[in-house]
Amino acid sequence: MTPIALLVSLEAVRTEVLSAMPNAPVVDDRRAESATMNKVRGFTARTLRRAADRVEPTPALTYG
């Protein structure tokens, strides 16, 4: 292994190990979601729930 590769790999391991420490900084990698995306996600969830209820109704609605 070349000396440069050894140094790069050691630095990568050090960074990975230090990221598990309790005092490690927290970085939010996710982007803020737009209002449009929240509406689309809600619409999709409602549509899938309706389709699931038609295929297999919940027992509370069937035996009620």
Rank of each mutant, 00 (worst) to 15 (best):
T2P: 06
I4L: 14
I4T: 08
I4E: 09
I4H: 02
A5W: 12
A5T: 07
L6K: 09
L6I: 07
L7F: 04
L7V: 07
L7Y: 02
S9K: 07
S9I: 10
S9N: 07
S9Q: 11
L10A: 04
E11Q: 11
E11R: 06
V13C: 08
V13R: 05
R14Y: 13
R14S: 13
T15G: 06
E16Q: 11
E16P: 01
V17S: 00
L18Y: 08
S19V: 06
A20Q: 14
P22K: 02
N23V: 05
N23S: 03
N23R: 10
A24R: 02
V27T: 08
V27A: 07
D28G: 03
D28W: 04
D29Q: 11
R30I: 03
R30F: 03
R31G: 12
E33R: 14
E33Q: 14
A35L: 14
A35M: 15
T36G: 13
T36C: 12
T36D: 11
M37K: 15
M37D: 14
K39L: 14
V40Q: 15
V40G: 09
R41W: 05
R41Q: 09
R41Y: 05
F43N: 12
F43H: 08
T44K: 14
T44I: 15
A45Y: 00
A45R: 01
T47L: 11
T47P: 00
L48F: 04
L48N: 05
R49I: 02
R49P: 00
R49Y: 01
R49A: 04
R50W: 01
A51G: 01
A51Y: 00
A51F: 03
V55W: 02
E56G: 01
E56D: 05
E56W: 08
E56F: 05
E56V: 06
E56R: 03
P57G: 00
P57H: 01
P57T: 00
P57A: 01
T58P: 07
P59C: 04
P59S: 05
T62V: 08
Y63M: 13
Y63Q: 15
G64V: 03
G64R: 02
